[in-house]
């Protein structure tokens, strides 16, 4: 059994569920909306970072990305759905790889488009305040932001496969991102810099002074994601369907 038909099936599964298409739309809508609001906010703060301000919509947008990843996996799990899937594709590793690809590609494309539009919209609001941004920095912000959104979607997908539950994944990740990372994150210790969301968001800043740079930060998030996906793949292969 080759990979392409399995991937096609997985992509079809995502396309044919309105909730998943809705989650992708929400990534775009939430990110651009919050970036637009940030664009017209106060810019006199000395810590003001125009790139992060313009891409601040990524923080709420990642909730939608996480939901997309978790739901794309959990839509397989209810009422014996996974049995149906494995009866059609018994090579579970191949199936999971196809699932991950079918999540990653649309998440990345939507993420890149979202980050680009968010930046454009926010810059329209920020005007002069964002004039110090170089093309290189903006490109890094857009590519990094899109990649970050994809990594968070995959992180959630891996956890959902491991926990065999979309609800458990969301109730773990969303409070973590909203509360733990937000609250203790500002107490900026070196450990919190390595949390999956904190590390990956360095790429959204014009200036950074922590342990991690933009790309090394994204790499740390990618490691978290890889770990979650490996754990998910292990669970998918080992456990009874």
């Amino acid at each position: 059994m080759s990979f392409a038909p399995v991937l096609r099936a997985e992509w079809l599964k995502i396309r044919t569920l309105r909730s998943l298409c809705g989650a992708l739309l929400a990534v775009f809508a939430a990110t651009t909306a919050f970036s637009a609001i940030a664009g017209v906010s106060e810019t006199s703060d000395p810590e003001f970072d125009p790139l992060f301000m313009a891409l601040s919509g990524v923080a709420p947008g990642q909730i939608a990305a996480i939901s997309f990843g978790a739901m794309a996996v959990s839509s397989e799990l209810h009422g014996g759905g996974l049995r149906l899937t494995f009866a059609a594709v018994p090579q579970r590793g191949r199936w999971f790889a196809a699932k991950v690809t079918a999540i990653a590609v649309p998440a990345l494309l939507v993420g890149l488009l979202t980050a680009f539009v968010a930046l454009v919209v926010a810059r329209a609001g920020l005007g002069e305040a964002a004039s110090g941004l170089t093309v290189e920095e903006q490109l890094r912000g857009v590519v990094g932001g899109g990649t970050y959104l994809m990594l968070m979607a995959l992180f959630a997908a891996g956890l959902a496969a491991l926990l065999r539950s979309g609800v458990a994944t969301l109730s773990l990740l969303i409070p973590f991102i909203l509360v733990v990372s937000f609250v203790i994150g500002d107490a900026a210790g070196t450990v919190t810099d390595f949390l999956p969301d904190r590390a990956g968001q360095v790429v959204l800043h014009q200036t950074y002074d922590g342990t991690l740079g933009p790309w090394s930060g994204l790499a740390v998030t990618a490691l978290w994601t890889a770990a979650a996906l490996l754990a998910g793949a292990w669970s998918v292969r080992r456990r009874d369907a």
């Binding site: 079809l12 044919t16 909730s19 014996g80 759905g81 149906l84 594709v89």
Partner: peptide
């Protein structure tokens, strides 16, 4: 080679019947 019906509730409720079958069919060409 093998067709099985294990649980009629396994189909995802939000898909149309046709899309449900298409997702199964696609992976097996």
């Amino acid at each position: 080679q093998v067709g099985a019906l294990l649980d009629a509730q396994a189909a995802h409720g939000s898909r149309t019947g046709r899309d449900h079958l298409r997702t199964l069919a696609a992976g097996n060409r």
